[in-house]
Amino acid sequence: MTITLTPTFLYVTGLNALSIIFFIITVTKLRRLLKFLTLEESSYTLLFGYIGVRTYVYMYAFSILTFAVLLWLITL
């Protein structure tokens, strides 16, 4: 698979980089906010029982990375 630096590819790379940076900033800020709210961090949901903030952060990371990879694959 050859990678050619088309404008589309560069735009998608920039978008994904911004996306990942935004995710890192969000998680850093969230850690700081949760530090002052030392109550139980998990919340009960109907279908899946107790789900913690950590699970949602992992889902967030997985979604961002999967979507970034899909966008790159499409541009290639």
Binding site: F22, L30, V53, Y56, M59, Y60, L71
Partner: peptide
């Protein structure tokens, strides 16, 4: 792609707001 990237971030920010 841009709209979906924005939407995915917005969805998880709503979840974090719930917490």
């Amino acid at each position: 792609g841009t709209m979906l990237t924005y939407y995915i971030h917005r969805f998880f920010l709503v979840l974090l707001r719930h917490y």
